[in-house]
Design a protein around this nucleic acid. Sequence first.
DNA 1: AAAACCATTGCAACTATTTGCAAAACAGGT
DNA 2: ACCTGTTTTGCAAATAGTTGCAATGGTTTT
Lengths: 337, 337
Amino acid sequence: MSATINDVARVAGVSPSTVSRALSGGPVNAATRDLVRRTAETLGYQPNRAARELITGRTGALGLLVPDLGNPYFTEVIKGASSRSRTSSYPIFVSDTDEHVAREHETIASLRHNTDGLILCSPRGTDEELLALAQTGPTVMVSRHVPGVPSVMGDAAAGIEQALQHLGALGHRKVAYINGPAGSYSEGRRSAGLAAAQALGIEVVEVPAAAPTFDAGVLAADLVLTTGATAIIAFNDLIAIGVLNRLTSRGIRVPEDMSLVGHDDIPMASMCTPNLTTIAVQKERLGFTATDLLLRLLDQRAARSSATEPDDTCLQLPSMLVVRGSTGVAPSTPPRS
Amino acid sequence: MSATINDVARVAGVSPSTVSRALSGGPVNAATRDLVRRTAETLGYQPNRAARELITGRTGALGLLVPDLGNPYFTEVIKGASSRSRTSSYPIFVSDTDEHVAREHETIASLRHNTDGLILCSPRGTDEELLALAQTGPTVMVSRHVPGVPSVMGDAAAGIEQALQHLGALGHRKVAYINGPAGSYSEGRRSAGLAAAQALGIEVVEVPAAAPTFDAGVLAADLVLTTGATAIIAFNDLIAIGVLNRLTSRGIRVPEDMSLVGHDDIPMASMCTPNLTTIAVQKERLGFTATDLLLRLLDQRAARSSATEPDDTCLQLPSMLVVRGSTGVAPSTPPRS
DNA sequence: AAAACCATTGCAACTATTTGCAAAACAGGT
DNA sequence: ACCTGTTTTGCAAATAGTTGCAATGGTTTT
């Protein structure tokens, strides 16, 4: 089939070990290195991954776990991760857990075998579970922080604060916040941003949503209408769009009767009518940065043999409110439930 | 770290080769096979992928290439493929080509090294290019057929026919068809379904779209309005939703002034207002079936040594028109351009 | 001139598994 | 007891790369 290291060695007139060292930066005479590089090139030599993995114990691949591929938020994160991994010769395994905690465990176990490191995006499960899972191998988390596990996240609290300021400026005094799934960490972070409400003279009512989906939003819309709020901040855009649909079909106009703010700025947010005001997160950058962090982590491991000091890196990427058509001045009276 | 075949052999008191045969169905005494199986179980033995790959030349993984992860159509296909591969111990590598033909070539080349077989979803490029790429290893295509390459596709022609019948029954006599990207095969198949128009007394005007995206749809909407058509069939739902947005913002009501039919039935189709009438394709099933076909192909290869007879399997999954809110009786006069 | 040192290179062992070939074990028939 | 034939088993080679150790050869130092 394809050329092996021995073929290159024979043609170049050196030993296989010299070829190995020449191509991987070992101590080799500059002249022979050039010779080896050239012959490898002309022979179209590609090192055999399996052989390398067998001897080094490293697979040269990464794994990325997302709760739901159907959620555009995660596909953006994936794109960012791919674009980083593309420049590093580390292929990336993507897997979908269908929002099941059990599936999450299985998939992590199976991915560990095929990868050198894992990126867990918005994982479910308790801190303890996740810490245990993270300790089975190099791990970086996205949109969730567990002490002892390096992570990358959007600054949800700041985003929420901006949204509250925006709504306050428009005269809203009672805002409903539609929560994400319990056990999702970003849920916690986002709720934390709500602390700013008091200072702004805004009352916040929390309303639960069963899942970060359109359907859950449809459901939540009716609940919100019983609260007397004149504006809504939703856990994510999918929920917000569900809310929007339900409000529209109940004859409640957005933004005249009710203002609506989403979170994440997925493409769909600028495709619905009215366009959704939303807290934009740098999704691609999130994936890119997480991959970068993981690769750096792997480099460290390769250098120092077993540096298992707990890494508490937690990078925060800024979020920004994008004002579009779904927010407006507060109505004099809240829409009747 | 984890137990090797030698550990199992030692504990069971047999040779490594016997363990190998016992676990992979070779000729072994039933009693020893049981013994080996049990000890492997208790030791938690997992065969080392790299070592196996090195000797057999098979990686035990599949690759799946899609033009754009951001397109919900493809994520559904991926879900189907994953659910099939999950039951087969073949992990699956997903990659995104960003709709670039060049990226497609690169990615295929790199995936070939890491996988035993590839699934190409809606690949771009000419028939000749794709045939050449397919011949570098086991390949199955989705939503595109090239003679000599096995494939799985939705029955686009039948779907378009149903849509035309539906529109005809509503009194439409002039229908605009918004094409997909040139060089996309499904574009050709879908156009073929338009042949039914004549028999139904419907005139079809074709309008090009630069890409299968929302933005391309926004663009195309204005072009359609110059044709005098009273109904639109779009290459896919993303384009349709782009059209819908543009029409709405130009004050043209859907479906009162203009009927609109999409294609694929992505989740977004039932999230926009009005809900989109669309030709539903069994996306998950497409991915599932393609993976199944590829796995069968690999089994065949494993059995007969080098059976390179060209395989022309082309499975067709039925499509069905889902009537929602975006189609209605034809207006007496077309909306003015 | 011998000794010491340095960079460079090759040898050989090692990784975990599969598999062709030959040996061993065992059964049945003579 | 011996031969034959079949099943079962083990040995050893092979896969393609990496890496510790030793050897080589040239240069510098004493």
